[in-house]
């Protein structure tokens, strides 16, 4: 799914959070939005997904014959919330079906057959993040990192045209980051899903993104191939941001 932002502005109490004349995302690519804390990364995602309204400007989906329906997009929050259900039932919530139900014996879900398929899909997604053994555990008992993985499985369990991920590796341990990055790339390749993720880790962007976008005080100051931006940044602000990661010295 293509996404086009035009003349997007957003302010909170007089402070400009976003000021983007034009920003485009192409179908089937992975974009990484990089920037320091408070640069507007999360707000940008929330406006794209329409969880928050911009003060002005438009978000459109060129090439999509109609306005995207809810099931075509997904958004993983920065601090994902798991419901007080089993881990499996949480993941099953992500399955796009008009007859989906989160109750075990709900006949209105279309019967055991649909629920059986959904269960298999959910178990596969859990297996992908290494948590299949936790399927029957109560989701609220998981650690922060485990919860993040379950939330990611829930986001990816069903094919989507557009997925927004807000700091998807924020709470996970280093050994799990590669697993999550591989999962993101796999979903992108398999379903041609447009994936837009935010991070303040340039290494993460370099490993998985087709394009990196640098956000600084609400403005896009640079964009391009991650390798190029991270090794040869053009803007002073980008250099300042990257200095903390000592990219240029590697």
């Amino acid at each position: 799914m293509d996404v086009l932002l035009e003349n997007i502005t957003k302010s909170y109490k007089g402070r400009t959070v976003l000021d983007i004349p034009r920003l485009e995302f192409k179908r089937g690519k992975i974009y990484s939005i990089l920037g320091p804390n408070g640069s507007g990364k999360t707000t940008l995602l929330r406006i794209i997904f329409n969880i928050e309204k911009a003060d002005s400007g438009t978000v459109s989906f060129p090439g999509n014959s109609a306005k995207p329906v809810a099931g075509e997009m997904a958004f993983l929050l920065q601090m994902p919330y798991l419901f007080d259900l089993s881990v499996l039932d949480n993941v099953m919530l992500g399955i796009c079906s008009s007859r989906r139900s989160f109750r075990k014996n709900d006949k209105r879900a279309g019967g055991a057959e649909i629920r059986g398929d959904a269960k298999m899909m959910a178990l596969e997604a859990l297996d992908r993040v290494g948590l299949k053994d936790f399927a029957n555990a109560r989701a609220v008992t998981l650690s922060g990192g485990e919860a993040q993985k379950v939330a990611l499985a829930r986001t990816f369990v069903s094919p989507r045209k557009l997925v927004l991920l807000d700091e998807p590796t924020a709470s996970v341990d280093i050994s799990s980051i590669k697993m999550i990055e591989d999962y993101i790339k796999e979903v992108n390749m398999k379903h041609k899903t447009t994936i837009i993720l935010t991070t303040h880790n340039p290494f993460h962007a370099r490993r998985i993104a087709d394009e990196a976008i640098i956000l600084w005080k609400g403005r896009v100051i640079e964009r391009g191939k991650p390798d190029k931006i991270l090794t040869s940044p053009e803007k002073e602000e980008t250099k300042q941001f990257l200095e903390n990661w000592e990219i240029r010295n590697r």
Partner: peptide, 13 residues
């Protein structure tokens, strides 16, 4: 708020 945003993020009715 968190339930609503999570459900929106999953496309739930």
């Amino acid at each position: 708020k968190v339930v609503e945003e999570t459900c929106m993020g999953l496309g739930l009715s």
